[in-house]
Design a protein around this nucleic acid. Structure first.
Lengths: 244, 244
DNA sequence: GAGTGGTCTAGACCACTCA
DNA sequence: GAGTGGTCTAGACCACTCA
């Protein structure tokens, strides 16, 4: 395919190559974990120089869509990879490493999006949702009570059995089972009082302070795909953030 | 200055150029807000190609140390710049924009680092500190109660008068008055109960849930320069985080 | 129009991986 | 040794800024 070099709305060549490669990722031509064609091959295919392809790939790698390995090739990044697995887990134990939680599925049901949820998920009010609630434990102690809302239209095929047989890490399931790739997330955090249910589930006094995290997870084009509310007992845990 | 092209511990040329430019920033040869020499001039100075200088500058720009402006030049980034001013302010109003706080200095004193503080700040236990406590208000209502600890050796010359006459944004003061550049920060967040003092200062009931943020601010070489504890009333505010 | 950074090319050579 | 990405160069031309 030949790219346009002068269009009414001019875009640099490497930006056009970025879009073409991203299309290949969205369409599934190259799937998570697999290798994409070499720079030289892509340069031939798109009829641009290797340097232009490299610039496009470097930006996609900086955005964590691709991973480069000298001598081996360029790979589609995947939540199954060791270093991506806990990328979205921001809760860590005060002493020690990031929590590898063990998830107990409390509930898995269909629901409808109210106005607020609909706005966050970019669906219309009343749209059908899958709702799942879980408790995440660390070393047997409950740490996080979580409610996850997913647009049912997107997550057709997700079942409680599937969730049970795969671990606590949902994004790897979304990716491999449903082909939905979570790329980034925006979180909004507050301190709240434990309500009666949270107190029971997290084994704290009612009214205890909990960290409330609302996450919107985004896929290609910043399209929201998941809304997640977590209540976290931060007595022995904390949320890690970095400002760079 | 000629850079080494083959050293025992080999480093790519552009990495060496990055270090040289960073040295210029640390030494104050180029100060915040000012323009650094053009790519062509730096290429001449370091006896490398323009492309190599560009690669070095691009990485420094990606790390927010430099800001490029086509047609104008490459500038040392500064906390005084409009788009850097609120970069480290992660608390926002639920409805509306990031908070422009109005700071009341409660206390400004010398202190000593206990073991925990010393570890965070990378100073020896018992080291002399400047400690300042403030309340940040938004639209007249108190939102954040903050304790800031600074290694006294680094912050010689910082006075209560100086803090009073400049606004709530400390990093711009550190930068312009003391030549200390905060580049990034690591935060650890918990939900806690308001103690008696926080309750009074933030006008909430004792025991109310507050967001407790511990920040370590870092300068060049990831050296810590500030330890900040914030207690935030998140009733109408939230902490924003992004996972990319 | 001179000077800046931004894009693009072509080509050389290096570092790493793997059979 | 063939193939991958990584570094480096030289040079052309474009887009933007400012006097």
């Amino acid at each position: 395919m030949k790219v346009a070099r002068s269009t009414p709305a001019f875009q640099p060549l490497y930006q056009q190559i970025k879009s073409l490669i991203t299309q290949g990722l969205i369409s599934g031509e190259w799937s998570p974990g697999s290798v994409i064609p070499s720079e030289i091959e892509l340069a031939r295919r798109y009829e641009v120089s290797q340097g232009t392809v490299r610039k496009a790939i470097n930006e996609l790698a900086a955005e964590n869509l691709l991973v480069r390995h000298q001598g081996k090739g360029t790979f589609v990044s995947s939540h199954a990879e060791e270093n991506r697995r806990y990328y979205f887990t921001r809760i860590a134990a005060d002493r020690g490493e990031r929590v590898l939680p063990d998830a107990e599925l409390l509930e898995f049901r269909r629901g409808k999006a109210d106005a607020r949820v609909a706005a966050r998920l970019g669906v219309s009010a009343g749209a059908s949702l899958l709702v799942l609630r879980r408790v995440l434990r660390d070393a047997g102690r409950p740490v996080i009570l979580e409610t996850v809302r997913l647009p049912a239209a997107l997550f057709r095929g997700l079942t409680a059995e599937l969730l049970a047989q795969r671990g606590a890490l949902l994004y790897s399931t979304y990716e491999s089972v449903l082909g939905i790739r979570v790329l980034k997330a925006e979180e909004s955090i507050k301190a709240v009082r434990a309500d009666a249910e949270a107190a029971v589930r997290l084994e704290v006094e009612p009214g205890s302070p909990l960290l409330a995290v609302e996450r919107v997870a985004l896929t290609y084009g910043d399209r929201p795909v998941e809304l997640r509310h977590s209540l976290c007992n931060t007595r022995d845990y904390h949320y890690q953030a970095r400002i760079v």
